[in-house]
Design a protein around this nucleic acid. Structure first.
Ligand SMILES: [Zn+2]
Ligand SMILES: [Zn+2]
Ligand SMILES: [Zn+2]
Ligand SMILES: [Zn+2]
Lengths: 135, 135
DNA sequence: TAAAACTATAAAGCTACTATAAGGTCAATA
DNA sequence: TATTGACCTTATAGTAGCTTTATAGTTTTA
């Protein structure tokens, strides 16, 4: 399988595949005489794994770590589960931060209607004066 | 006021101030004979405004837009309020996406306890098989 | 006077790609 | 046979918002 076919199969751009190879997330495939990369089914599985991890919001570093665990199949999976727990708390703290942000933005927005001049805009005034109802 | 004092006043690194100047968010200050930047109180206010916007999650482009409105104080503030409305919807869609993600991650995590071998890890299996309970 | 602290510019690094440029390879068509 | 088009190669730059590093000049302090 050449790079274009693999890309279409998994739904990724060819550059992305080369990028993952360069980052050490995909093993370098064999090459044809003309230099073209030749992929196997294993590469397809590896690439699909990476993509599903990315959809779950895992960073390339976290994916790399997971791969290192996969290479050690008889270790206990504590570290894998811990990695996921950490990632869940990453996501949760992002959610919390964004919710706080949303409240601030909504209250800022409520301080103005559409019929003022810029000079009297409650939004701009709120930002300028630091009335951001923190915490 | 020199750059270090301004930085300490607002709670920013000196490089960040130079960066904002370079990006056109802070007006270039006067220089001493030795080339050192000299800042006024206005610069302090401008910098604090930028920082508060950043804390509210506004992009530099959005901040730039707000600044252009500030320069036109007798226009109606419709555009300012619209910018904030847009930003609030940015934030809300991020929250929604992260909440979906969190559900997927929690359900994935629930598919494993800590007492398995990697080979039998429910988390890794879940990712590999694409059991991500989408939508 | 010499070191410490501050300033300057320019360039690279960070994440996870995406896009562009310039070129080599191959099958099919005119 | 010549050429078109689809595919492949590498290398380089761009995205956002800084941070870090390198190198050098200036001011303040001991
Ligand atoms: Zn994470
Ligand atoms: Zn307004
Ligand atoms: Zn926004
Ligand atoms: Zn497990």
């Amino acid at each position: 399988m050449r790079i274009g076919q693999l890309a279409q199969l998994v739904g990724v751009e060819t550059q992305t595949i080369r990028f993952y190879e360069q980052q050490g997330l995909l093993p370098p495939p064999d090459r044809q005489d003309n230099g073209y990369r030749v992929y196997t089914e294993k590469h397809g599985e590896g690439l699909a794994f990476i993509r599903r991890c990315r959809i779950l919001g895992l960073s390339l570093a976290e994916i790399h770590e997971l791969q290192s665990y996969q290479d050690d199949p008889y270790q206990p999976c504590t570290a894998v589960n811990a990695l996921l727990d950490d990632h869940i708390s990453h996501v949760r703290s992002q959610i919390t931060a964004l919710q706080t942000l949303e409240k601030q933005l909504v209250s800022l927005r409520a301080s103005c209607n559409d019929d003022r001049e810029i000079e009297a805009c409650g939004v701009l005034a709120g930002i300028s004066e630091g009335n951001m109802h923190q915490q």
